[in-house]
Nucleic acid binder design. Structure first.
Lengths: 360, 360
DNA sequence: CTGAAAGCGCTAACAT
DNA sequence: ATGTTAGCGCTTTCAG
């Protein structure tokens, strides 16, 4: 209706409603304290005036901004980007549910040829009491910058396990990559594949090793050999393609029509990959060789990627999908627990991905 | 070093430096007013104590939060998602450069089967003075929710042209889709293609129409006919594929080896698409027909997408790339101008996309 | 150039 | 159940 130059204040509402400022404050924060009729009267005026508590004043008084800080690092690799988008959306939504908002900040421009300071940007926010807590997403850097944060008295919860310290004293939420890859392996196994290859990353990265373990475990459980079925390459399409080619050639066969996937020796008939990027490489190689893809083992090769990226969705690539919505909810839960009570037992939550089954 | 329970305040610094609070404040906000030696002494203490002004107090006093609100709507279509990620990153970075941060908020959960309220979420932020301004990204909805914002006295700048009102009284930044598509068309033309098809969306969407215009103009300028070279379909891979098939079949030819792209009648030898999604469909159809892709017109078909999505990058698809980094910078510039001066002449900025040239 | 006073809008404690 | 008082930490007058 009206367009007041300056937003209504508590005092405005109080005067108009014929009560004191405190009563209005209570109407908002402790409605139970008011008599029903007073409450409704105050509420009417609040609505009429379009009053919303001044955020700064409230924050100054309560020392709570209802803001969650999330640092956006420099652009990550392909797949991480997409995941990040979905994650951020989910986090904003989940935080919104409990009355929080998400404050994005950047780690600052990384100086030429310099290692980015993993803590840059956090400090100011902590000291200026601009945010109540942080969601830290780059623990996978292996860098427990977490240490820096705890010492700084900044509440935070991590998306990602503290790989190097299983007993870390902070809450975290992570996705069970091994379980995801295992499900992927089971999937192609159910379709009749027995020679199931793994195309992963070079050993040493916790996430990569974890995912590989899922494949290895699944194979073992089915009594399948993994010999000659493994490649460790960097995360590019070309590398994935080369790896697939090498695996297909290695044990002979595979150049013609794919001899029908026996359970013994021989070229792989299915590929489980550590990323969609690698899987795209595999698809390219199979396509170049004229090998059919999808269906049961008799119909064509099996290919599964990881992250359910845009690429997977467009190409019809079956892929492991991280439950980022659940991750966000769990993070927010942990955060509210953290902010609510003084005694916080550090808890870890491990969520299981799903498999987005498509053509391949 | 130390870990004070509570962050240092202005008073702490003042006492330790042997000056008044005001002097410390000046040291931060008006360094010129201090004598050099006083300044350096105060600065030393500030550094020593790790002092950072309390954000809430400052905001309460100055009525400026140095926060820019950005609403994250519900997940968009494929390509928008990817673009959003890159855009948000760029915006955070650009805003950071001028000392602002980005506050994400959600439009609220859209009730089942209900049209999302395009203004939901903005109101509270405005009235609670939580943000200084907004960046509005969904003007392409054709919905000038902008109106609502202006009336509300909320400064904002739009990413996206006010299509339905060329003289809108707010600053905006947009990407010249027509120019991008034109560049794409020129690109395949330079490679020797003459029968260049356009696969776009059904008429009626400003963005789609604009992009199509770029193709049409480029064709006209080269004196090329566009007859029988156009398809308007929904934005899916399958639709793109069908459209390509239809165009290839329509004027005969094309099933064998592609007869070498004359300039007269005949099937298209190149496809410029309104989206990467459609282009992927084209690639699939060409692949199925055994038609080569890339190189000069003599070598293979030309295909260009739009948005330089992850998919394009992975598939080696040439694509029009929106300069989102520049968009972010321009938005922030417009915003600071808006916030700085009282007299703001509404300005529009139209940026030209680049062409990410790849295999196709 | 530096200091003292006032108050932004709100809520936690205490009155009533 | 409602009103009063005080003060969060900062910056904008205004005096010295």
């Amino acid at each position: 209706m009206e367009t007041p130059r300056t937003p209504a204040t508590l005092a405005d509402v109080a005067e108009r409603a014929g009560v004191s400022r405190q009563t209005v404050s209570n109407a908002i924060n402790n409605p139970d304290l008011l008599r029903p009729d007073t409450l409704s009267r105050v509420r009417a005026v609040i609505a009429e005036l379009g009053y919303t508590p001044n955020q700064a004043a409230r924050q100054l008084r309560t020392r709570s901004s209802r803001l969650i800080g999330l640092r956006l690092g420099p652009a990550q690799e392909f797949t991480a980007n997409m995941a990040m988008d979905r994650f951020v959306r989910s986090l904003v939504e989940a935080a919104g549910q409990v009355g929080h908002q998400v404050l994005l900040f950047s780690g600052g421009p990384v100086a030429e040829g310099e290692r980015p300071d993993p803590l840059a940007g956090y400090d100011d926010l902590v000291r200026s009491t601009a945010v109540d807590a942080f969601v830290v997403t780059d623990t996978y850097l292996g860098n427990p910058q977490t240490i820096g944060l705890t010492r700084r008295g900044a509440p935070f919860v991590a998306f990602g396990r503290p790989w190097d310290d299983p007993h870390a004293a902070h809450p975290w939420v992570d996705v069970d990559g091994a379980a995801g890859v295992r499900a992927a392996t089971e999937h192609v196994h159910r379709r009749g594949h027995r020679r199931i290859a793994w195309i992963g990353w070079p050993p040493g990265s916790p996430i990569g090793d974890d995912r590989r373990a899922g494949w290895h475990r699944a194979m073992s459980e089915h009594g399948l050999s993994t010999a000659g079925l493994e490649a460790a390459v960097e995360d590019t399409v070309d590398a994935g393609r080369s790896a697939a080619a090498a695996l297909l050639d290695d044990t002979g066969g595979g150049s013609g029509g794919g001899s029908g996937g026996g359970s013994g020796e021989g070229a792989p008939t299915a590929f489980v990959c550590a990323s969609d990027t690698l899987a795209v490489g595999v698809l390219a190689e199979l396509d170049a060789r004229g090998l059919a893809v999808g269906g049961s083992a008799a119909d064509g090769m099996g290919v599964v990627g990881f992250d359910d990226s845009q690429v997977a969705q467009v190409l019809g690539l079956t892929s492991v999908r991280q439950p980022l919505e659940q991750v966000a909810v769990a993070l927010v839960e942990a955060l509210t627990a953290l902010l609510g009570s003084t005694t916080v037992e550090p808890s870890g939550v491990l969520l299981t991905p799903t498999l987005a089954v498509r053509r391949t």
